[in-house]
Amino acid sequence: MNGRRIMIVEDEALVAMMVEDLLTDLGCEVSGSFGAVGEALAYLDDDKPSLDGAVLDINIGGEMVFPVAEALRAKGVPFVFATGYGALPRKGFEDVTVLAKPINFGHLRDAVHGFGHAA
C-alpha cells in the first residue's frame, strides 16, 4: 500500500483531518483534500500524476459529490463513499462501497486494499 495516492473530498474539517491521518497511517499519500465539489473537479481537470483512489463524502456543504464520482469513473480511478446519511439514493453508483461515519479504520483499510486491485 505504500505510496498509494488517494484524494479526499470532505467538507467537515475535523473529519477530513482524521481521514488524512488514517490514510497516512496506512502508508498512503494524500494527493489532495478538498472541501468543495468545484475544487475537487478543478483538481481532476488538471493533468496531474495518476490517482490510485479516492474517499468521497456524499454531501459536500449541500452539494452532492456525484459529479466528482463521475469524473473519477471516467478516469478509471476507484473510489468509496463515506457518509453520515443512512440510505442516500445514489443512482448509478449503487455498486460503490459506502463507509459509514464514524469511520471504522478496518473498513477504510479494506477499501484502500480494494483500490489496488482495480489498477
Binding site: M17, G84, I103
Partner: peptide
C-alpha cells in the same frame, strides 16, 4: 429524522477525530 441522523453521525465522526488526534 434523516437530517438528525446525519448530524449525529457527523458529530460522532468529529468526536472520533478529536479523540484520535488528541491522542497522537
Amino acid at each position: 429524522m434523516r437530517e438528525l441522523d446525519h448530524r449525529v453521525k457527523n458529530t460522532l465522526a468529529s468526536v472520533q477525530s478529536i479523540a484520535s488526534q488528541t491522542l497522537r
